[in-house]
Every structure is written in C-alpha cells, then in structure tokens.
Design a protein around this nucleic acid. Structure first.
Lengths: 197, 197, 197, 197
DNA sequence: AATGAATGAGCATTCATTCAT
DNA sequence: AATGAATGAATGCTCATTCAT
C-alpha cells in the first residue's frame, strides 16, 4: 500500500458519500423546482432517500445546499459568455442569447427572488456566487456592446441580472405569461436612450 | 323594521363594525408595509386592537384582506390612466408615467410577487382585482401608443403589469439597485422591434 | 349590566383560562418532580391535557413556568421565617426548622441546581425569585442568631441557601442517603468557629 | 506465538491503540472541564483526533469514559488519606484537608452531580469507583476522629462524600459563592452534636 | 358581533449510536 | 483496529384557524 493508492475501504467510503451527496443535489434541484427553495429540508432528505442528518452533514445550512445545487449551472452560464461574444453576429445578439441562457438556469426555481434580499439567514452565499461569476461576464459583454453603440442605456450588469432574476423567479411555466418575451423586452430596452419618467 | 329607520342598536352595531374594519385596514396596510403581506394575522389584529376572530369575520381569507387594503390605491391608479393620456405629451409618455404610478402603488409591499402565482390559498382576489381594473386601462393606453407607432413590441398589458410587479415586489429601497431605472428600461423596450432570441 | 358585574361570557372565558393555567401548573409540578425541570415542554402540556401552544401562551419561556410553579411555595417559605423566629426556642432552632422547610420546598425538584448557574436561557427568573424572597428572611434570622452568639461561622444567607439547594437538588428520596441529615450537619456547622483548611 | 515476543505488527497495533486511548483521555478531560461531562461524544472524539467509533471501541459507554478520565485522580485522592492522617495535627484536621483534596478533584467537572443519581445510562461506574476507593478511606479517617472524640455527628463517609460532591458539582468558580467555605462549614458540623430539626 | 383561548400540525436542528468498509 | 457517514428520534417553537362564551 502506498500514498498513490489509498486503501479500498477509504476510497469506497468516499464513493458512497459522494453518491449520497449527488442524490441530495438531484433531490434538492427537483424539490426546489417543485416547491421553491423554501421547501422543508425533510422533503429534500426524503426525496434523496437519506436521513435529515445526512443532509445536514453535507450541507450544514440551507444556503450551502442552494449554492451547491446551482453552482454547476452558474459556472456553465459564466463560461458561455465569451463563447457567445465570439460566435454571435453582434455583441447585442450575444447578450440576448446569454440572458436567455441565464433564464434557462433560473428556470423553475421558485422563491429564488429572496436571493436578492439581504437575507442574513440563507441566500447570501448564492447571491455572492452569482455576483462573483456572472456579473463580470455580463459586464464585459455590455462593454463590447457599448463600444459598438448597440447598447446605450446606462444599466449595469448587476442591475440587469437582478432584474432578470426578479422576472423569472416567481413564474412557473404559464401559457398566459411567457417570461422569455418579457425578458426580451427588457433587453431590447438597452438599445434605447432612456426617457425621463 | 324598515330600511330608512334602523333601530339605534343596529345602527350602533354597524358603526362599531365599520370602525373595526377601518382599524383593520389601517393596521394591515401598516403591517404589510413593515413585514410584508405574509405577516402573521395576529400581528395585524393586534395592531388594530381587535381579536383575531374579528379579523376573520371581516376578512375570511388573507386574500380578502390584501385586496381590501389595496383596493383604494388600485382604483386611484386606474383612474389616472385616462387622465395621463390626456395630459402627457404622447401616449408613450403617458404609459411611462402611469407605470411609475403603479410602481408607487406596489411600493413597500414585500411579498406581493406571490400574487401572480396560482396560489390557491391567497392572492387570487388581488390578482383578479388588478387584472380587472388595471389591465383594461393599460390596454387602452397601449392601443393609443400603437396607433401612433410609438409602441411596436407585441406585449400585452397583462404581461407588462405582471412584469412590473415582479420587478418591484421584492425590492426594498436599495442604493445598489434602483427599481425605477429598471422599470424604465423595460418600458422603453416597447419602442423596439423585438429581436429573436 | 354594570361594572361590578362583568358579562358572564367574559368571566367564564377567564375562568376556563385560569383552569387551564392551574392544570398546567399542577402538571408542571408533577412532571418537574418526575423528570426534572428540563423535561420536554410537550410532556408538561400533555400531562395538563392541553396543546403545547396553550402552554406557550400562558408561559412564554420555560423560566416563566418554573417560576410560576414554585412561587407559591417560595412565598410560603418566606412567610414562615418570622413566625419561626417567634415560636421556636432560639434563633438557631428557628433557622434549623426554616432550612428544613426550604428543603421541603426544594423537595423532589430534580435539575433545580441549574438555577444557580448563570444560565442565560432559563433559570434567571427563579434565581432572582429565591434571592429576592428568601435571602432577606434568612439574613434576618442569622442576624438574630449571631446576636445571641448561637451562630459564629461567617456564612451569608445567600451562601447557605445556595448550598442547601445544591445538596437537595439532585437527590430523590434514597434510603442510602438522607438529605435532611446532611442539611442538619451543614446548619450545625454554623455554631462552630471555622477552621483553616 | 508467545507472550514475551509478540509479532512486531501486533505490538505496533497495541502501541497505536494505547496512543489513541491516551489521546482520548486527555481530550475527554479537557472537554469535560470546558463543557461538562454531558458534552457531545463527537466533541471528545474530534478533540482527540479520532473517529467517534474509535471512542466507542475504547469506552463503550459514556460512563466508562468518565471513569477512565477520573480514575487516576481518584486513586491519588485515596492514597492521600492515610498520609494526611499521619502528617496532620489531628484526625479532624486530616479529614478537613482530605475533603478539600476531594474538592480539588471534583474541581471543574460540571454536571458531575448526576453521578449520584441512579442514572441507568451513565455514571454508575463512576459512582462505584468513588464508593469503592474513597469511602473506605474516609471511613477510616472518621473512625479515628471519633475515637479521639473530635467528630461526634453520626454521619457516614458515604453521606459526606456525596454531600461534598453535590456542593461542588455545579459551581464553577464564582466570586459570590466560595465553595470551599461551604465545604468547610459542612465538615465543621461534624464536631457538633446533631440537633433534632 | 367580538373576543381571545386553544389547538396541533409543521419545521429546523442536534445528538447518541450503529455499521459497512 | 479505525474510520466517519448515516440514521432518526427527540425537542423547541410558531402560526393559521376554530370555537365556546
């Protein structure tokens, strides 16, 4: 036995634990989609087929769980920004596509709007994650779009991301109300000089 | 017994009841502003100086209370539509002003975003109230703005009102995030042909 | 109807509420005796035949309940001090009798020792009650006993009361260990000059 | 296999196990002092740098751990009895000194009062240890003191040891309440004929 | 019509103990 | 022999709603 080959027992234990963590993440994603991020922790644990304490072991606070659930998607979204800038016909087109990717990410996650409140309990971590990863990406895209004069409205990336979050957060798929259309409306406003209300 | 001369006792009864109802409405408005529309009913009853059961008598569901609290403001908002259409420089300008009046109304009411969810428990009534009173007003304003080609985006009044609600609902005054600026951005998008995302 | 004859409904309500409160006090006394003052609140509520929330209504914190349970007995104990001073053959005899009344009061109350810890959660109120009501009584008795030279040890009433509490707190009736005998031993030490350990 | 030459592997195993046990004892002593003997077992295991199951292997019950932690000190205390009898000026002086050694031992161990309860869960073992080791020592000392008529109160060693335990158990250092003074008061009572309460 | 006491379900969290590796 | 992940029962507390007076 040597350092590069850990004992099977140890590795297996970790494998099982990882399996549980994955099950929790899947369960949480599903439960959050169905019942919002405020769903009872017991419900998540039950959906994952584990005890509540197991959930607490892996994710000591609800915030940790929420962040873990969304981190992958946030990362993918962040990575897509530069790619779209390169592939789309114009910076504005890239922004529009990127914002819709962000909408995909926010998807069905009810209750996520609380992320933007200064909630001391929970959502600080997710708030930070989004701000840290997505705001810089969109900031760059907006800068390019301004350089080409496609975007003229004095809106920051933070404001736009937060607004989209609000628009999506509480809207499950609804034939009467197509979120994408509204998000497109919002983004298209970037091309307008802003009137005085 | 005849309608024009109720017995003094009965009249007194009604007077007291009205007084209670008014106290409840004031209390609810204040509590909702401070703690959101999810605030405990006891808190509202206590603020009004009445028992909880009295609250329930007047407003059997939370939804009824919410509606009653906001009906006056909704009415005022509805009435302002035609007036703005007459006084502002253009239909678009009128729409912009009117939407900001609506923002004023939504103002400090945390948690109001749930109005748009298909919440069976509450909010159905407020949803209906807003749809019944405000959507027609904004529909007319949009029609005029389209007639003058100021507005070209294919957005319905319902969609716009709902979007503004989402944008405002969870955002207490925050120096980092000025809701009005975002709402203006959204409205200014009405003047743009909508791109395909 | 006049002020001296409240409406039957109101009075009856209060009567019922009082009945519940009494039931809770009895239940708490019994449960505390059996399982200590740390016993689950649910257990007390169940023993009283009421819901937990009813318990919380009457006694918002555990501390409140504990104090309420013991207040009557503390009062009785306090009142007995001067009476014993008058009736017993000597101040020392009165002290001895009084301390044993205090032992009766502490009786079977397991877990009560925590009263003396600086427990921020709970017992501050009971601690204060005992200090406020009993310490002055015993202080007077000790003063008289010192005046007649029966008591010479430099011990304060607070120290003695606390010591007796410790001796009794965790000792349910046990044939192997008679608390009264030990308490008597402690009190009889008051007549001795204290040696240097 | 023979006793005088164990295989190196086996010896190594035992060495490791011993190391773990020592680490656990040190950790437990420290944790018990800081958080009382009720401290979570995980805390002890973590402080020792081992898994909880390792703790359970070495000390199947909390009681076992408590006893192991305190055995050395109990032994030292027991040994001091005869020595003091020889060195002090009188049997009573020896008793007083010895009891204060016992107080030193009980020292910072919060929650130890439960030792005297008939706790089926834990503490039985520590109870037995103290009874087995210390009671005989104090019994001898009391016998000598009675022989010289210094002690006249009919108290057993068991009762005295238990009383001192109760007095010390829940009293962390507190300027308002000096345990040693009270213990001295108790011991000095031994020189008094006991009054009838 | 008004009261407010009572209810009990619901939720977050902790901890002792077991067990597969 | 050691590990530490998993378990789930236990507990404190809150809140919407009902109901007898």
């Amino acid at each position: 036995m040597n350092a590069s080959a850990p004992r099977p027992a140890a590795r297996r234990r970790r494998t099982d634990a990882k399996r549980n963590e994955d099950a929790l993440l899947e369960a949480a994603a599903s439960v959050f989609a169905a019942s919002g991020v405020d769903a009872p922790v017991r419900e998540v644990a039950a959906a994952a087929g584990v005890g509540v304490a197991t959930l607490y072991r892996h994710f000591p606070t609800r915030s940790d769980l929420v962040v873990a659930v969304y981190r992958h998607q946030v990362d993918a979204c962040a990575d897509a920004g530069p790619a779209l800038l390169a592939s789309e016909a114009s910076p504005f087109a890239a922004i529009l596509r990127w914002v819709h990717l962000y909408v995909d990410f926010l998807g069905t996650k009810h209750g996520l709007a609380r992320v933007w409140e200064g909630d001391p309990d929970g959502f600080t971590a997710l708030h930070r994650l989004i701000v840290d990863r997505l705001v810089p990406v969109l900031t760059d895209m907006l800068a390019e779009a301004r350089a080409s004069a496609e975007v003229v409205a004095p809106i920051t990336a933070y404001q736009l991301i937060r607004a989209v979050g609000d628009l999506v957060a509480f809207n499950p798929p609804d034939p009467q109300y197509d979120v994408r259309r509204i998000v497109t409306l919002l983004v298209s406003g970037l091309r307008q000089q802003q009137p005085h209300p």
